[in-house]
Write a protein that binds this DNA or RNA. Structure first.
Lengths: 201, 201
DNA sequence: TCCATAAGGTTAGTGACTAACATGTTAGTC
DNA sequence: GACTAACATGTTAGTCACTAACCTTATGGA
């Protein structure tokens, strides 16, 4: 209770704390016993709340493990790149840069989370839904950054290919984290796009 | 009961007939009332079976609407292309060719099914899972077709980009079927890949 | 003091999906 | 022609994700 506190500020903090506790307990249990073998009831109990509170914070059991917290950020990063830069390069820089930070700060957590997702069908499905949503955000950001809406199909295909490349790099990394490091893999994945789709081919 | 009938042949036929009935009734109800508003119990009743029979034929409610019947075929089509052909061209030809047939025979059904899938979150997620599975099949087929396992990341990225391009074309088509026809869109999507990822930028 | 608000709890559902067990029908065997 | 194994299907009784309606509690302001 120092001084500068908004009206209902501590409420928000408490709510965020509850949310964080739920998420931590959920991830812990998922890693310990597997996603399917963990019930929402257990997660709620471990977090000291009722199962309704769980669902007030997360719409589904999948969302707590594979929710997408970074999505709006990616859109901004892409939009804030120099206008003259080619689309592929914008995405590559935005994505690579954003991920490098998470990677440096939290490599082990990122790895554990992705392995969990990749080995759980329900979470994999959810991850793709996220990727598609990211794609929509990026396409929207790029459309706004350019003048009029240029070529919908073109933009969607390019962004889709880039995100697929990035997702592939992450997948390959998670499957063999002892091998090449993630940033390097992302570089390589984008290099493949450039090399493979040349007319001289 | 003519003559040439395998031992347990008519069993298989009856089973296939039941499966087909369930699927037809399911799709009909999904299109009439929406996916979420249709219960498995209703589908089973409409098909004249119990809900257990439904689950013996389809593992989940999603599978009956967004199951992937063509997956093994794609693998074979890709593998049977001339070895010298670039990977992108193999996939483009295999995919384009296979889809053109379905398209010519069943355009309306294809459209209805895709619209249903695209407007239902649960089915969209399932569709992505399918695409990933197709990707695995194609990568496997190509790895086998080549000699040793060349570059895993390279192949995964290329195949992923191609399938994403095809999926984007289908999506754009389903969202606006009055516009450009699907085969044309697929051509364009692949053209975008070629044009956009050239080193010259 | 009293009331509005917002986080959380309780309870009673619905519906997808599973496991265990029962039934009828057909294919081969004696 | 009865006998049995195999198999598609049915019945029943669950578990668990998720929802809706309603109640409780605690804070912050009037």
């Amino acid at each position: 209770m120092t001084a500068a506190e908004g009206p209902a500020d501590w409420r928000a903090r408490k709510k965020a704390a509850t949310r964080k506790t739920i998420q931590e307990q959920a991830i812990r249990l998922f890693l310990e016993k597997g996603f399917d073998a963990t019930t929402v009831e257990e997660i709620a109990a471990a977090a000291g709340v009722s199962h309704m509170t769980f669902f007030r914070h997360f719409r589904t059991k999948e969302e707590v493990a594979a929710g997408d917290d970074y999505d709006p950020m990616i859109g901004e990063l892409v939009a804030s790149r120099p206008a003259a830069e080619p689309v592929v390069e914008k995405i590559r820089q935005a994505f690579g840069g954003g991920l490098a930070q998470v990677y440096a700060a939290d490599r082990e957590a990122l790895l554990a989370r992705y392995r969990l997702i990749l080995e759980t069908p329900a979470l994999r499905a959810r991850l793709w839904e996220n990727q598609n949503q990211t794609q929509r955000h990026v396409v929207e950001a790029l459309t706004k950054a350019a003048g009029g809406p240029p070529d919908d199909l073109r933009l969607e295909v390019v962004v889709g290919a880039c995100l697929t490349a990035a997702a592939t790099a992450i997948r390959v990394w998670a499957e063999n984290p002892e091998g090449t490091e993630l940033p390097e893999l992302i570089d390589r994945a984008f290099a493949v796009l450039r090399e493979e789709f040349t007319p001289g081919g």
